[in-house]
Amino acid sequence: MLLIRCPYCEAERPEVEFTYAGEAHIARPADPSALSDDEWRDFLFIRTNPRGRHFERWRHMHGCGRFFNAVRDTVTDKFAMTYKAGEPRPSDEEIALAGSATSVGEARP
């Protein structure tokens, strides 16, 4: 069971308090009627589904109730960082910095 840091509660909490909410940074278009059918299809259904770093949304369902964003590796399941809804997609440097601050050390062989 993962530990997830809620950026609003500013605390790590066990995964059972959270629900997953899909890919992050897919904003609802301000005027959907201006979109072509293909553009609207892409907004509705097309997701990156990467192997590796994924920007995604979570909700601290059984806590503060807030939706927030996270950077997680889909191979290792590890969270690199979490941040508040509405904040911009973090840069590689920010993710690396956050990752080194919070990630666990490598095992001693």
Partner: peptide, 11 residues
């Protein structure tokens, strides 16, 4: 034998 680990553990 164990190689590179992914958690805070040792053998």
């Amino acid at each position: 034998l164990p190689g590179r680990g992914k958690e805070d553990c040792c053998l």
